[in-house]
Amino acid sequence: MTKPDIFDLYTDYLITSFSYTTATGLSELVDGAVNHDQITRFLSQQDFTSKELWKVIKRTAREIEADDGVLIFDDTIQAKPHSKENELICWHFDHTVNRSVKGINLLNCLYYANETSLPVAFELVKKPIRFCDVKTQREKRMSEVTKNEQLRGMLKVCCQNQLKWRYALADSWFSSADNMKYIHQTLQKYFIFALKSNRLVALTSEDKAKGRFTRIDSIEWPEGPVQGWVKGLTFPVLFHRQIFTNKDGSTGTLYLISNELSATKTTLETIYQKRWKVEVFHKSIKSNTGMAKSPAKTVRTQSNHIFMSLYATARLEGLSMKQGLNKFAMKTRLYTKALQQAFKELKALRVSTA
Rank of each mutant, 00 (worst) to 15 (best):
E149T: 15
H92A: 05
V101K: 00
A209Q: 13
L155H: 00
S309V: 09
K58L: 04
G324A: 04
L155Q: 00
V145I: 07
R275A: 09
D5H: 12
E52Y: 04
G324C: 08
F281W: 10
K58W: 00
F239E: 10
F244M: 05
A66F: 08
T136S: 14
P295C: 01
L349Q: 11
G25Q: 09
T186E: 15
T253D: 06
C159Y: 12
I306S: 11
N246V: 01
V101M: 01
T214N: 03
G252L: 05
H184P: 06
K135V: 10
I64H: 04
N86Y: 01
F213A: 03
R241S: 09
R199A: 15
K286Y: 10
T2V: 05
K140M: 08
L169C: 02
T313D: 14
K51I: 14
T336L: 12
H184L: 05
T289D: 08
E65C: 02
P222V: 10
T204F: 01
D133V: 01
A121R: 11
E28G: 04
D37T: 06
I72P: 10
F193A: 09
Y167E: 04
S19Y: 09
S44L: 04
V237P: 11
V125Q: 01
Y10H: 04
V145A: 07
R350E: 15
L319H: 10
E52F: 02
K189E: 08
E139N: 15
E85T: 07
T204G: 07
A113Q: 11
A348M: 13
K84D: 05
Y20N: 11
V299C: 06
R241A: 14
F93W: 13
Q162M: 13
K247G: 00
D217N: 15
T313A: 14
F235N: 09
A329I: 14
L107V: 11
K347E: 12
V226C: 10
A33I: 11
S352C: 04
